[in-house]
């Protein structure tokens, strides 16, 4: 194990999140069992008060997950000097088989927490709190995921050995490596361009449609569109956006763009991208509950707003990416 402050901080964050959820678990179970909104009994009043604690707690955990995901990548990048063959985060994450799963789970937890907060937001605006049991069931269901996140990070950090020779972005995303990432990286720039801008255009269009129509179909479409566009955008970053930033025809790497060598431009891409994806997907999920009587007035304006956020986020992302491509000296397509 490499004993480093950032690593301890990450483990602390994962542990703290898990501990808070574990402490909250029995109360969540109580809410699920005894919730009765019509009652004015003291127990019900107590449970209602508990819901404030939970929303604050989950908001806090969500914040921790966002920052921890950033810190995780940031730290992996810094650690790369310690491993032979590692030039950036990819190399450090590849040191053992737990690096990438830990990162993916971290990102998944971010999206889950964001979805939960969207549900919570809608629920707490409906006078009878219609989603309360669902919310707390989800919370209980998420606890194993948080535990898994902590376990994966532990495994990853415990398994770090400085003398390991690892493979970095050069081999992982290069055309001849047998990985999915490399297949994406090897996409010809032409088709990749079309998929990238096509998916963003579709997501923005669907979101705009939902903003106007505010119905179920457009809502679900917005959610799926946002998810698809997220995948397409990550693929696009791998396939060509990163090349333009590095001004190098073969350097496909989604992490190096976060480095100071490239003026931290990656953050300019990822922040709008993640915000847009989270907002769009939340709109789709919330739409599932639009038919509940007490939510009928709450959900439509909320999903419309989320759709607008997603559209703005994707447009911002596309503009920033295009600007970076335009400013680059690299020429991929004549």
């Amino acid at each position: 194990m490499i004993f480093q402050p950032a690593i301890i901080a990450l483990l602390l964050a994962a542990g703290l999140s898990l501990a808070m959820l574990l402490i909250a678990a029995p109360f969540a179970a109580q809410v699920i069992r005894h919730w009765d909104i019509a009652s004015g009994s003291e127990r019900q009043l107590r449970l209602e008060r508990l819901t404030y604690l939970f929303s604050t707690l989950v908001a806090f955990v969500c914040l921790i997950q966002i920052l921890a995901a950033l810190l995780f990548v940031f730290n992996a990048d810094k650690m790369s000097v310690m491993f032979v063959g590692a030039m950036c985060a990819v190399g450090a994450l590849n040191v053992n088989e737990f690096g990438f799963p830990a990162l993916y789970l971290q990102l998944a937890l971010f999206f889950l927490a964001a979805l939960w907060l969207a549900l919570n937001h809608a629920d707490s605006r409906a006078r009878d709190y219609p989603l309360v049991k669902l919310k707390y069931a989800l919370l209980l269901a998420a606890i194993p995921l948080f535990a898994a996140s902590l376990a994966l990070q532990m495994q990853y950090f415990l398994g770090l050995k400085a003398d390991v020779i690892t493979s970095c972005c050069g081999s992982m995303f290069s055309a001849d490596a047998p990985t999915l990432a490399s297949e994406v990286g090897a996409l010809a720039p032409g088709p990749a361009f079309i998929v990238f801008y096509g998916a963003i255009g579709a997501a923005v269009g669907l979101a705009a449609w939902h903003w106007r129509r505010r119905d179920d179909l457009s809502g679900y479409a917005t959610g799926l569109g946002a998810l698809a566009a997220f995948v397409a955008c990550i693929a696009g970053i791998l396939a060509f956006v990163s090349l333009y930033i590095y001004e190098h025809p073969n350097h496909h790497c989604p992490f190096c763009i976060l480095k100071p060598d490239y003026e931290y431009r990656g953050y300019g891409l990822y922040i709008p991208l993640f915000a847009a994806a989270a907002a769009g997907m939340s709109a789709g999920v919330l739409r599932l509950f639009a038919r509940r009587p007490s939510l009928a007035q709450v959900v439509p304006p909320l999903t419309a707003r989320l759709a607008a956020t997603a559209a703005i986020g994707y447009v911002a992302f596309a503009l920033i990416a295009s600007l970076m491509i335009w400013q680059s000296k690299l020429i991929l397509i004549e």
Partner: peptide
């Protein structure tokens, strides 16, 4: 309004 949660 008797069943309304405190928030409302």
């Amino acid at each position: 309004i008797s069943g309304l949660p405190e928030r409302f």
